[in-house]
Amino acid sequence: MERVPILKIGDILLVSIQVDMSDQTAVQLQDDLAERIVATGCHGVIIDITALDIVDSFVGRMLSTIASISKVLDAETVVVGMRPAVAITLVELGLSLNGIRTALNVERGMELIAAAHADERELAFEDEPDTETTASS
């Protein structure tokens, strides 16, 4: 079975999915990521799906689960690089990827994580940080 590599860049874990994943590979990625977040103490995860030519409900659910898990582990997940055809198909399929933050490319994704992190630091001694997120920024 293939494994999707996870790279650590500074305070961010970068996952660039380059293969047509089998369901098992996707589940494995979910497990690997959770472990790496804890092991590295990273506060941001970027999942680059530029190379994916489809996202079906299984992969969609995996992305949502990763986002929720990383939230629990105090890391922000941003899914980047979704192709237009994939986005149109997901809308038609009825999958809204609730709770997942998205960005056009890796660079914007990093900005998003940096901004979220900065917010948190600023708000550290104020009220609870606003944890409500949507697919938009």
Partner: peptide
């Protein structure tokens, strides 16, 4: 509406 939702999925508003 679909266009707007698709754009959001891609990370645009």
């Amino acid at each position: 509406l679909k266009t707007v939702v698709a754009a959001r999925l891609m990370g645009a508003d």
